[in-house]
């Protein structure tokens, strides 16, 4: 069997005394502190820092224009170019949602509706933002390209009820998304 014997490093007297290492450490932290106070922290400019450290001062400075495309913010429902609500309430997102934030009550589309052949749509679609963990599973599981995580991240409310996004609000956040697969065309 392969037993590898590792030799412990031989410590010099300075190492054993420990004090030089402490002083070195103090020197390093002092260097950081001084740079920080002079507003010259490494990377401060890159992060739009206010000068002290690299921290971005949130409400005053925001990073919205630098958010990557894959940023996972508030989940929302989208409509397509034909103004059709894409969700058919298959409830897969409700099923996959790890914190059970999504509640859907399905509904049948009336026969006089131009999209009657889609047959099904959500009557109620609620996402409880106090529960949502922004994991993006709903977007990933959606077979209809109907739910997307948007770039919004500042969800606030004064009550729990306010933090529940209903269907209307979800479509308002989601807006129109173009270029999606049109699977409910004439030929289907």
């Amino acid at each position: 069997m392969a037993i590898i014997k590792i030799k412990r490093p031989q410590l010099t007297l300075a190492d054993k005394l420990y004090l030089p290492a402490v002083i070195k450490g103090l020197w390093i932290t002092l260097g950081h502190a001084i740079r920080s106070m002079r507003g010259k922290t490494h990377g401060a400019a890159q992060f739009n820092s206010s000068g002290l450290g690299v921290t971005m001062q949130y409400p005053e400075t925001k990073w919205d224009d630098q958010l990557p495309d894959y940023y996972r913010g508030v989940p929302a429902l989208v409509t397509d170019e034909q103004e059709r609500e894409r969700c058919v309430s298959c409830q897969l997102c409700e099923f996959i949602c790890p914190p059970k934030a999504i509640t859907i009550i399905p509904d049948e589309i009336e026969s006089d509706d131009p999209w009657a052949k889609v047959e099904k749509r959500p009557k109620e679609f609620e996402i409880d933002m106090t529960r949502c963990i922004y994991c993006g599973m709903c977007e990933e599981v959606c077979p209809e390209q109907a739910i997307y995580l948007r770039q919004d991240y500042a969800m606030t409310g004064l009550s729990r009820a306010e933090m529940v996004n209903d269907k209307e609000r979800l479509y308002e956040i989601g807006g129109v998304r173009t270029g999606l697969v049109n699977k409910w065309n004439e030929l289907k």
């Binding site: 932290t29 950081h32 502190a33 920080s36 106070m37 206010s50 002290l52 450290g53 690299v54």
Partner: peptide, 13 residues
Amino acid sequence: RVSSIIQDRVGPN
């Protein structure tokens, strides 16, 4: 504050 300037942060401001 001192810990934050040592760690390149801001601290309570």
